[in-house]
Amino acid sequence: MQKILIIGANSAIATACARQWAARGAALYLIGRDPGRLAALADDLRVRGAGAVDTGTLDVDELAGHEAALAAARQALGGIDVALLAHGTLPDAAACDRDAALAMAHFATNGGSTIALMHRLAGLLEAQGDGTLAVISSVAGDRGRASNAIYGAAKAAVSAYASALRQRLGRSGVDVLTVKPGFVDTPMTAAFAKGALWARPEAVAAGIVRAVERRRAVVYLPWFWRPVMMVIKALPEFVFRRLKF
């Protein structure tokens, strides 16, 4: 039975991943902020076939609580085969441009707390000698854009740290997977008409589950974002700075 830890389990992508793992009989440990929604998700996963489901509450911004939360998860699962970090916020970019404190709070949630959790999980998996650390970054981290500066900067930090951990942990048999989704149709955006670039969380989740299984390093979801971002990263600054998107 695969033992899977998910942080930010109530996010749409994480929930969809959890359901696919549950259908295969995995044991899951769910970490999130809202205990009521975690309990509802745990019931859902049990019905769908999960071998075991436990939950723990954590506010990821409270870095001091990380160690105990991860220890509880490891103990409940009896080891960790896959850890998926999926928590995050999508800040209002204009508000962040006006308010430095707000910007730093979002940077801390999307960047600092994620890196802190990756740091502790890396040590944990390294000691264990196997396992996969999967982190949801974003195409937004590939190149900073004015329309979501703080979010993009935080995701860039996460992607860079994941790359570094991959180098370090490869020798000890631990895989690190960087997931870079594009636009995802989550409940928060349910009322907007979606163009062709929008992906469903179930499709993104299927890509994550597959990438974990195949021990991939970096996965763009859907796949077409890889060539798109290659082009965007290759644009010279004198062109990029004039673009509006």
């Binding site: 009521g36 929604r37 509802a40 409940p187 928060m188 349910a190 009322a191 907007f192 008409a193 979606k194």
Partner: peptide, 28 residues
């Protein structure tokens, strides 16, 4: 999903709500 996010399947008539809210929590 129909083309407008909150329409009916037959696409007539198209009546716009003034606001929408996503519901996630059955106990809320």
């Amino acid at each position: 999903m129909s083309d407008s996010a909150t329409g009916a399947w037959n696409r007539w008539p198209r009546l716009r709500p003034a606001r929408v809210a996503a519901v996630h929590d059955r106990d809320a």
